[in-house]
Design a protein around this nucleic acid. Structure first.
Lengths: 102, 102
DNA sequence: ATAATACGTGAACACATATTCATATTATAA
DNA sequence: TTATAATATGAATATGTGTTCACGTATTAT
């Protein structure tokens, strides 16, 4: 591609991409998503596994849910969260592998 | 993988991964990296193309350089920056494509 | 040496964000 | 209805971050 027909990024794309990476830029959210890689899990179970308080986990899950990176289902009083974006989860897995083998 | 032998992330990996995504979590840095996708470019040229002041671009480039996402070469008074991490640039490109076709 | 050009750096500021605390909501059980 | 359990939410706070300003450093030209 030459300099003349360089395609700059539109605002909407820029915002969406940066928001998605922002979700992956925090250690707590990475740990949560990593837990959900091949299983669904309740809020309290996530909190227990990662030694975080419940409120913190709820806040982070809301963040991820707003970006449609996770989804949930209710069963009685318990709410189970699971992944909802294969592309992002694949990128996360790749990056963890890449960082580990270094 | 069962619950029992779930492999949790070590601190070092967690930090490295989150730092890398943090680099991609800011619109300005995304625009800079996008500019450098298939060409090297001087600091002032980047600033001009993206309508940013030179100091801002320098700060962001230092951030990216510390993470070894970009490298530079000097030619007289001018310093040319270019990409230095194929894996990250590939992830960025994929994510831009994914966001664009949506 | 002096001036001019390109880039880097530290401080300061405004703003965003992660976490905690207290409390509200929702659903089950007694 | 009352109590208990699971989760969500809003406020508060501490810390992090992006940008700008003023100035410093490095290189070239005169």
């Amino acid at each position: 591609m030459s300099d003349e027909n360089y395609q700059s990024l539109d605002e909407e794309t820029l915002f969406l991409v940066s928001q998605t990476f922002k979700a992956l830029a925090d250690p707590t959210r990475i740990r949560i998503l990593h837990l959900l890689f091949n299983q669904e899990m309740s809020v309290s179970n996530i909190a227990q596994q990662l030694d975080l308080n419940q409120s913190n986990v709820s806040h982070q899950l809301r963040f991820l849910k707003n970006l449609r990176l996770v989804k949930y289902r209710r069963d009685g009083k318990t709410i189970y969260y699971s992944q909802d974006d294969e592309h992002v989860m694949k990128i996360l897995q790749q990056s963890i592998d890449h960082a580990t083998h270094h």
